[in-house]
Nucleic acid binder design. Structure first.
Lengths: 182, 182
DNA sequence: ACTTCGAAGTTTAGAGTTGAAGTCTTTGAG
DNA sequence: CTCAAAGACTTCAACTCTAAACTTCGAAGT
């Protein structure tokens, strides 16, 4: 038959076993953490993608809405700042805003006090979309953590935050291009 | 001056505070876990990207090498299986393989026993690249977890694995398209 | 055998991104 | 006051991915 061996997605355990087989100096405990983290994050993004798709927006658009809402009250930012925040090039931001203006999620106006600048503002519709997406996301997240006791949740948050702090201190924003936002 | 308010990346705490300000029914403990997870994963990918770039390959190419190595001894897979494994469309896989063949990282041959099939195989050079990338990755990962005791590492791995299991049971591979691999 | 169906890869068209070049304001040095 | 340099955004060309059409080979039915 000469079947090609591996194909469908292996279980986490099988994968770690494969890593150890192919690469001796590997701490399985470390690999467990790293692989689970990566895989979990991926699955979560798939879930978010499904939810935003249901609302008729893309994940990319959701991120722009998030950035604007989290910016606070006037809900306005310049394209350049948005680009930095989302980890995109300004060019990509220009196009993304084009689309979102066409869909009525944001507005684009020139800053009258400094006519080089552009201001992107959230529309009512954009704000509502964000709220809807947020409601769906929190339901999903609550469900995800359902099996964990309050204590475990706290511990998990603390451990992750410690790791995060370590990475952020090690590579202090470097080029400023960090991709997606939370 | 009329400066646009938010711009550079906020700290994790500030961001969670912003979420609570804009969206009342939010469990801060849940949000802490989710945001830290997402952010950490992102930073790690940036780090991996820098490392693979140093070796002259892209993150995308690294993933193909990983899949082939983890497949085990003959280090061969069909493009379709590779695509499923990496969460790409077969079309994207075709192009990716084109590039990697040109760079000498993999070979492409027709399966003589079934001439519809194609077999992608790892070259010596591809295997070495993977080894080099792996060495760099493990150094980084070890450093990342440096502050955590063995006990904490175990606990973290266990908690993440529990979450992962929950997500995987909830959405059992759905379309089979899950994007990147660990 | 002949024909049809299905599976595996490739090709093509379109969406989205990047890096580099271009445009238009603002700033500041002479 | 003028003009060069810097900054903010946009435009352009090249690249990568997706979805859908297409090609080819193999398997199964009649």
């Amino acid at each position: 038959m000469a079947d090609i061996p591996g194909s469908a997605e292996p279980s986490l355990e099988d994968q770690i076993a494969a890593y150890q087989r192919e690469f001796q100096d590997l701490d399985p405990q470390v690999e467990q953490v790293v692989s689970a983290l990566s895989r979990l994050n991926r699955r979560m993004n798939v879930a978010y993608g499904r939810q935003t798709a249901e609302l008729g927006i893309s994940n990319a658009e959701w991120e722009v809405l998030k950035a604007l809402v989290l910016a606070g009250d006037p809900y306005r930012m310049g394209p350049g700042d948005l680009a930095k925040r989302l980890g995109l090039t300004p060019a990509a931001m220009t196009h993304r805003i084009d689309r979102m203006v066409a869909e009525g999620l944001v507005t684009r106006e020139r800053d009258e006090s400094n006519r080089v600048r552009v201001i992107v503002g959230l529309t009512q519709s954009g704000r509502h979309k964000w709220m809807d997406a947020m409601r769906m996301a929190t339901v999903f997240e609550e469900e995800l953590l359902q099996d964990l006791s309050a204590e475990d949740r706290g511990k998990l948050g603390e451990l992750l935050t410690r790791l995060l702090r370590r990475v952020e201190n090690a590579q202090p924003d470097a080029d400023g291009r960090l991709s997606d936002l939370d």
